[in-house]
Design a protein around this nucleic acid. Sequence first.
DNA 1: TTTATTGTGGACTAACATAGTCCTATTTCA
DNA 2: TGAAATAGGACTATGTTAGTCCACAATAAA
Lengths: 133, 133
Amino acid sequence: MIRISKKVEYALMALKFISNSDHKLVTAREISDTKSIPYDLLSKILQTLKNENILASNQGMNGGYFMNKRPDEIQLFNLMSVIDGDISIAECLNEKADKDCCLTDICSIKLPVSKLQKEVEELFKSKTISDFV
Amino acid sequence: MIRISKKVEYALMALKFISNSDHKLVTAREISDTKSIPYDLLSKILQTLKNENILASNQGMNGGYFMNKRPDEIQLFNLMSVIDGDISIAECLNEKADKDCCLTDICSIKLPVSKLQKEVEELFKSKTISDFV
DNA sequence: TTTATTGTGGACTAACATAGTCCTATTTCA
DNA sequence: TGAAATAGGACTATGTTAGTCCACAATAAA
C-alpha cells in the first residue's frame, strides 16, 4: 500500500498548528484536544520531532513546543524518514536488505523499481511543511 | 509506509517474464520456479490479472497464460489498483471514508494531501509495464 | 516547599494488512 | 482415465501500525 502513515498525518497537523500559533508555546494537550489526536501518540511524535530539532520544547508548567525550523526548511521526505524510518518503495531497496532479495540475478525488475524510487523520493523532497501550512 | 507490495512486485516480474516469452503459453509453475515466487500466491495474482483482462489463459494440460494487452497499455497505477485495491495515500482520500475523518473542519491538511495524492497518481500512471520489460 | 502541569521515554497491547499456505474443484489434452 | 494445468475459497502466520499505560523529570506558581 502506498500510504502516508497516521503518525505523519498527525505530525503535519501538529506542525501546521504550531506554525500558525507563532511565537507562543503550544502544548501537546492543546493540539490533541483541538485536532482529536490521541494524546499519548501525539506526545511521542512531538518528542521525535523535538529530538530531530524540528521542534524545541520547554518542560514544566507553562511549557510546550515551538518551531525550531522554518516550515520551508522541513521536507516532507525528511519528516517521513524521521517518523516512519525506512521509506523505500520496495523491501530490496533499503540499505541492509542486500541478502537473498532482488539483487540476485533472479530479480528482473530492480533497475526500473530503483528509478521509480528515485522519482518518488524527488516528489516527497519537493514538498515542505510550508505546502501544508 | 510508502511501499509497493510484494504482490505487485511479483506481478511485475511475472508480466515481464510472460512478455519476454512472446507467442507461447507460460505456466504459473514455470514463473514460480524461475523467479522463486511462492506458487500459490503467484497463482492468485495471475488469476486476478486474468480476470482483469491483462492476461488470458488456457486451462488444462498444456495450458498457461499469455498477454492480453500490450505492456505499454498497462499502467503501473492500474496494476496496483487491481492487485492491492485502494491506493490512496491517506485513509480519508478513498471514496467511502467520508465519515469522521479529515473531511471535517478538524482536519487542516486535506487540501495539500489531496494535491500530493494527485501527483503520486500521475507518477504511477506515467509508468507502464513496458518500463519494466 | 508543595503541588499541578507539562514534557520524556520505555514497555506493552490491539487492530489491521500483507504474505503465504492448504485444500478442493474444474478443465483439457494425451 | 489420469496427469497437468487453471480457478478459487478458506485459512494461518507474520509484521506493521496505531494506540495505551505507566513511571519519571522538570518547571512555575501557589
